[in-house]
Amino acid sequence: MMILLLIIGMGCVTFLLRLSFISVAGKTSMPQWLQRCLQFVPIAVLMAIIVPDLIYQQHRYQLLNNNERLIAGLVAALVAWKTNNVLLTIGTGMGLLWLLQSL
């Protein structure tokens, strides 16, 4: 029940963000300050999601020497930067993780 309520809440806020300026099309446009703030949001959000997954495991910081995920993630980032290819990035990261853990 709580889960369903959560899903509906998430759905409502997401829909309102999407509808925002489309609903008032032609009547008003986005203020300049909002436009300036929003340009930096996507990249900041992505980094804030990625970094904790790579450096913090089992409730503590894990550095390069015993952190396969960090190594695999850094190599995957290099692949993403060079190739711009989603599948190749995921494939390299997973492959490297499995390889390092089997060593």
Partner: peptide, 28 residues
């Protein structure tokens, strides 16, 4: 682990200039 990898694949191409790189580094 495919979750952070997916986000990595989306993030790297979004760093289009130095200012965005600085924002990315700061958030990281």
């Amino acid at each position: 682990f495919t979750i952070p990898l997916t986000f990595i694949a989306l993030a790297m191409p979004a760093i289009k200039n130095r200012r965005l790189a600085a924002v990315a580094l700061c958030a990281a």
